[in-house]
Design a protein around this nucleic acid. Sequence first.
DNA 1: TCCTATAGTGGGTGCGCACCTACTATTCTT
DNA 2: AAGAATAGTAGGTGCGCACCCACTATAGGA
Lengths: 147, 147
Amino acid sequence: MSSAHSTPPALLDLSTYLLSRIGKAARGRLADRLAQRGLRLWDMAVLAALSDFGPHAQRDLVVRLGVDPSDMAKVVDQLATGGYVERARDPEDRRRVSVSLAPAGRDLLAELDAEARAVQDELLAPLDPEERARLQGLLLRVHQGLG
Amino acid sequence: MSSAHSTPPALLDLSTYLLSRIGKAARGRLADRLAQRGLRLWDMAVLAALSDFGPHAQRDLVVRLGVDPSDMAKVVDQLATGGYVERARDPEDRRRVSVSLAPAGRDLLAELDAEARAVQDELLAPLDPEERARLQGLLLRVHQGLG
DNA sequence: TCCTATAGTGGGTGCGCACCTACTATTCTT
DNA sequence: AAGAATAGTAGGTGCGCACCCACTATAGGA
């Protein structure tokens, strides 16, 4: 992949390029670890949303995470098959499926979070803790601006 | 896409996630601009390499940029068709094709660089110039560590 | 009640990217 | 001169991702 060797300075001077490259490495490494468990990035995002905000109608997960409804159906189905989330028809509107985090899902999320932090340690190895915190703060603000 | 709205804090707390997300946005926006000219990211990388380091044997471009030789052939072919680079058989080793930047390629690279900086302005809008410089410095060091 | 809108689902499409194989032309080795 | 190695090329494959369409079930409004 990105053969460390002598990347053109014209590219290294562009934050756009660095973000693209580093982001790809981050995504790739995390995806690899999730793949070993038969999971993809969206699985983790769904678990995190359920953990942070409680049960969601499937439709609300779609809105929150910005995924196609059809794709979300597949993700939730897989998570339910694995016993990580529970699906239940909403009695007040039987079109809706309420999705909630199962205990196994909470455990899984903790493990995935640890995987993500391991990737982080690899990736941010050149930075000391203070610098990592500064980077995190800057990235957070950039992310907020993404709209 | 990443619907700014209420991303799970468990994810926002992970630099891995932020890098992945922001990197994807950076890549996507730049790729869109290049696509309007019928170009892809590798085209820009090749132009930058030629500009920064002078003519390359095609094989050396492959090594420097870490691309598959077969894919590089296609990129160079497209750039040559557009008049942005020139191909010449190396007389000392007629297997080799020496690739060099044509004047039109230098102009194009300048425009693409401007496009990249425009994306940068969009993306890093929440940061002031000093913060952008700090981010750039941190990213550069992280990139160096990618190996 | 009829008509429209909404929630979820199954199946399929197109694109970009990385990768691989087979092949030709040329050079190097012995 | 023969065989192995190298540079480049044409074409094809598999994967992940985003997206779209058709369909069922349910609910809400006129």
